[in-house]
Structures are given as structure tokens and as C-alpha cells.
Design a protein around this nucleic acid. Structure first.
Lengths: 233, 233
DNA sequence: CGCCCTGTTGATACGATTCAAATATCGTGG
DNA sequence: CCACGATATTTGAATCGTATCAACAGGGCG
């Protein structure tokens, strides 16, 4: 059995004013005084691959902004199998339900090394009082969550295995703005695509044989975007 | 070819104060003066099965509360096939993206006879100004949308055909608080479950043969809840 | 070095899709 | 109201794709 190999590390309070992704962040519209007021309450953490940001049913009192990395959100079915319902990366927010509920509805697990800012729900609520325009930003986050879900349904859970894998690769490459994408375990790929690890493995092998993708380093995939697109018909 | 057989009918302005589902509605927390101020801007419509509440990419300037009935939200894949991403019914809100975007992201189609209240985005925005606590209710709606999506992913898009059909029947019966559920076309069932109509048809036939369900009237399914649950393992 | 975990590959069985045809149902006009 | 054509549903047979079970290779770590 796999031990949850690695833990998270606290890496200081946030330096919001010099944040590299500040313009893309939930609080992008706040100004200096606001940041001064809140940044002490925002902690930064680094999670190594496989470590858990929060578990399903954990007490939920904070949301997290992903600064770098990749996170999966999983839910367990009654029969014990798990399914990945969303994949989140830089500038995405996870745990929004902490603003409504007192338990997280998913488990959030780092797939790559991931830096996050932990923002207590209380901070968000205070800011909402003072800056109602934050409503719009928050709503945009909810909207993004729904769009992501829609995409998982229509593109990653529909059609034959090859199409699902290809759509995922294209999506990851597109988000990276690159021909490349960093992948993760075949098991997680399966849980995301609704396939078994063996099927994912076979499909990837076939894509390589066709020359549509190459894997110069392990879990680093270089895509022939045009041919992959063509393969979707 | 199927003509879009039936149109919607305007059935008057809303009578919010005497609304049968008032306590479950987005504006549940508003008081009389608020309702007086807005109800003139809220129109009621009735859609018959198959008619379209709005289409993907239509100009989006209103959200809709479903009073009665059942609505599907569909999205088209690049290859032209469509997939149902959510099923909405009484007290649900559709078209929330109208508060953020100027186009609807899905097509919304009535599956059963459906009554809706059309609430212009401008009304929602005005109310948000005056009653910031409305934001919590709005956020709860977004949250419900995400939860619904999660359910479509984990329960309706995962596992073998039989399990998906059974989970859907149980879900519909549960929402109805009943052993019964009103179904819709096999084609739509397929689009919701990620299966072909033939597979759905066969699966339903098998469930009937096993005695897990009966269909006294067409599209009215009576479930043997316990046995269906047991069948899921 | 050896063990464990992950990924790969193979053989087989199962399940879903596909194509085709028959049947049932719905809507319409005579 | 019935008959007709159009549409939806059911069923069948063959094919294809995926899951399953099992064995094996490679890499990382103690």
C-alpha cells in the first residue's frame, strides 16, 4: 500500500502585493490597503505530489488559491471507487464550498508539486462586507467550476477511450500554451476519464506508436497537436 | 425530421407573493415590499415537452426559475453530438451565467411540461445592490449547480450501463420522494448517461424482466427501490 | 541487492455499439 | 374516428472496444 508519502509544508504568510499571479487571483481587484489588512491571515503551503490539501468531510474553514502545480478533486462512490471530478491548476480556487458548508465535499490531492495560498473563509466574508464588488469575482469562480465540470462531462467522460485521452492531452497542452503537458499516474488518468489504468496505458502506447505523441521524459508528453486534433474527426 | 413541435406560452406576470414554491426560490428571503417592486418584471411561461427555453449562444439577459416540470441542459461537442450535462426541476434555477456572460452556454429544453419564471438579469443585479444577503442565496445556487455536475460525473457517467440507469432511476425517485419517476425519451436518457439509445432500451427491458421496475403508463416508472439499491452492490 | 509499486503487455470474457429490421406509438389529415 | 405516415422504441446478430485477470519489466527506495 502506498503511504501518503509526503506532507505539506508551511512556507510563510502570503506576500500578496508582490504575488506573481496577483492579477489573476480572486482578490485581483483589491487595492493595497486591503491587501495589507488581510495578507497576514493568508498562509502559503507547498504540497508535494500525492499529498492531500484537504479530505472529503474535513472541517471546511478556508478556500485555497493554487499558485503553481496541479490538483485533483475526487469523490468517492458508494461502492468505494473514486472518481476525479475536476483538475485544477494555477490561479484556480479550490474549496469554495467552505463559504457555504462546514465540510469539504471532495478530497483535494496534489498531482504535481503545488503551492497554494490558504484564505480563511472569515477573511472572504469580511472582504465581501467591505467590497461588495467581490461578489462578481467570486461568482466568476463558481462559474469557472461549473464550466470545468461541463468539460469533464462532455469531453473526458464521453466517447471511446482514445478520444477521451486525446481530448485530455489537447486540453492540458492548450492550458499550458504549449505542445507539451505534464502528466500524472495512469491510475489517476483512469479515474479522470472513467477508464481502467490498463486501457489508459494501452491507449497511450498506441498514440506513441502512431507518432502522435512522444514521451521524452517520464510523464512529459509532447503532442503533435494537429494530428491529435485530426484524430478526433 | 422532427419539427420543434411546440412553442412556449406567456402565462402572465408572476404573482410572487402567492407563489407556491416561494420558500424554495432564489428570492425566498425577500419581503413584501421587495416583491411588489419586482414582480411586474417577472414573466411566467409554460413550455411543452421538446420546446426550447433558450439555445446555446442565445443572448443571455435573464435567469429562469423552474416552477414545475423538468429541463435538460445540453452542450454540443465539436463532432456535433450532444450531451446532457444537467437535469433541472422544480425550484432549480437555470441560466445563471446570464449574470456573468452575454450568451448562454447551454441549450435548455423542456423534457416535461414546464412552467418557469423569467427573471431579467437587471432585476437580480438591482436586488443584489439593495440586499447583499441575496448573494448567499445566489452562491447556494451556484453550489447546487456544481453538486449536480459532480453527480452527473460520478453517478451517471461512471460504470456499466445497468448501474448508470439504476442510479438515475433512484435519483429521480428520490427527488420525487416516491417510488415513481416520470421518464423521458430513450435518446435523452442515452445523452444523459453517455450510452446509445439501444443500450438504454435493452437495459430498461432487462430491469423490467427482473421485476426491479414496472412501467404502468408509458414513461412512468415504478421502482422497487430496495432491490434497485441492492443491484448496485 | 531485493522488494514494492507502477506501468506495460497479453489472452480472454464481457459488455456496448453498430447496423438492420420489426414493432409500437404519435400526430395528422381524411 | 380511423388510417396513414412519420417517429420512437424494441429486438436481433455481428462486431468492436473495454474490462478483467494474469504475468512481467522497470524504477525507486529501503
Amino acid at each position: 500500500m502506498k503511504t501518503v508519502s509526503t506532507a505539506e509544508a508551511w512556507t510563510g504568510t502570503a506576500d500578496c502585493r508582490n504575488c506573481a499571479i496577483r492579477q489573476s487571483v480572486l482578490f485581483a481587484r483589491l487595492d493595497e490597503p486591503d491587501f495589507d489588512a488581510i495578507h497576514r491571515q493568508i498562509d502559503q503551503y507547498t504540497f508535494s505530489p500525492g499529498s492531500i490539501v484537504y479530505s472529503q468531510d474535513d472541517a471546511a474553514d478556508a478556500i485555497f488559491t493554487i499558485r503553481t502545480g496541479l490538483v485533483k478533486l475526487t469523490q468517492y462512490l458508494p461502492d468505494g471507487t473514486q472518481r476525479i471530478v475536476r483538475l485544477l491548476q494555477s490561479t484556480d480556487v479550490i474549496g469554495l464550498e467552505a463559504l457555504m458548508l462546514d465540510r469539504y465535499e471532495h478530497a483535494a490531492t496534489a498531482l504535481h508539486t503545488t503551492e497554494v495560498c490558504r484564505i480563511p473563509s472569515s477573511v472572504v466574508r469580511e472582504l465581501l462586507q467591505r467590497k461588495p464588488q467581490l461578489f462578481n469575482d467570486l461568482m466568476a469562480r463558481w462559474h469557472r467550476a461549473v464550466s470545468d465540470c461541463d468539460r469533464v462531462i462532455t469531453e473526458l467522460s464521453t466517447g471511446p477511450a482514445r478520444a477521451r485521452v486525446v481530448r485530455l492531452l489537447l486540453w492540458l497542452a492548450e492550458r499550458k500554451g504549449d505542445r507539451q503537458c505534464d502528466l500524472f499516474s495512469r491510475e489517476d488518468l483512469g479515474a479522470l476519464l472513467g477508464l481502467t489504468t490498463e486501457t489508459v496505458s494501452r491507449t497511450m502506447a498506441e498514440l506513441k506508436r502512431q507518432g502522435w505523441i512522444t514521451e521524452p521524459r517520464i510523464n512529459l508528453i509532447v503532442c503533435d497537436i494537429d494530428r491529435l486534433r485530426a484524430a478526433l474527426g
